[in-house]
Simulated assay, not measured.
Amino acid sequence: MSCLHLPPVPASVGDARRWAAPLLPPDLPPDLRDSVVLVLSELVTNAVAIATGDRAAGVEDIEVEVFVDPADGHVTVAVTDPSDQPLPPAPVAVEAGADHGRGLLLLDVLAHDHGWSPRECGGKCVWAQFRRAAAPRRTGPRRPAAQPAGCA
C-alpha cells in the first residue's frame, strides 16, 4: 500500500494522478487504468472541496492511498476528507449544463465496488475497488468488509 498526503488545494488533484499512475500494475488493461485514475481524481477533487470549506477548522492534509492486491491484482483507492457527512445512498440527478456534481455517478458506474467509512479521528474515508477480471459492477455504496488502512 502506498500513501500520499496532500494539501487541500486544487493542484493536489493533478499531483495525486501523477503519483498514483506509476503505482498501478503495468499490465492493467488501459480502460481499467483510466477508470482508476479518473475515480481517484474525482475523490481527491471532492476531498479538496470539502477541506477548503473546512479550512477554518484546521484541516491540513488529505490522504490518498493506492493498494494493489498481490494475489489478484485488484486495485483499491481511498481518499480521506474532513467531513463527517455520509455519502448519499445514490448519485443525484445533475442538470446537463452543471459544471460539477457527477463525481458519485462516475464512482458508481466505473468502480466494481465502493463505499465510505467514518474515521476514528474525524472525517471519512471514501474508497473504490477495481477488479481485473470481468465482474458485474454493483450499484450503491456500502461499507467494505475490510477497509483500506487510512479508513480506520
Rank of each mutant, 00 (worst) to 15 (best):
P22N: 00
A111L: 01
A51T: 11
A93K: 04
V66P: 09
A57L: 08
E65P: 06
A49E: 03
V36P: 04
Q129S: 15
D72W: 08
D113R: 13
D34V: 05
D108S: 08
R17H: 05
Q129V: 02
S83F: 08
C121A: 09
A20H: 02
R55V: 04
A20R: 02
A11Q: 10
H5K: 12
C125K: 01
P22W: 00
L4G: 07
L28M: 13
R17F: 01
A96E: 08
R131A: 11
R102F: 09
P148F: 06
A56E: 15
P118C: 13
A57D: 14
V77N: 02
I50H: 13
D113F: 07
G115S: 08
S12T: 03
S35P: 11
A20W: 00
A146F: 08
V39S: 05
S117H: 15
C125E: 02
D27E: 14
E65V: 03
V109I: 11
P30Y: 07
V79D: 14
Q129L: 07
I50F: 11
R142T: 07
V59F: 13
D113H: 11
D54Q: 09
R17N: 08
V44M: 04
L107R: 01
A135R: 04
L104E: 01
A152L: 04
G150E: 08
V109F: 15
V37D: 12
D81V: 04
A78E: 07
L38D: 10
V79T: 10
G14K: 13
A57K: 15
A146S: 11
V92F: 06
D108P: 00
L24K: 04
L43S: 06
V68M: 03
G58W: 10
P10A: 06
L28A: 12
R132M: 08
V79H: 06
P148C: 12
T45A: 12
A78L: 05
W116V: 00
R142N: 01
V109E: 13
P22C: 00
P26T: 01
L28N: 11
P7L: 02
A49Y: 06
V68T: 09
D81K: 07
F67A: 15
A20I: 15
Q129T: 14
H100S: 09
C121H: 04
D34Q: 14
Q129K: 13
P30L: 10
A133R: 11
P25A: 12
P118T: 13
A152T: 10
S35C: 12
G123T: 11
N46D: 07
A149M: 03
T139R: 09
A11K: 11
A49I: 05
G53V: 02
L24H: 05
P7Y: 04
V9P: 05
G97I: 09
Q147R: 09
L6K: 09
V126F: 02
T76S: 11
H100A: 13
S2K: 12
R143K: 12
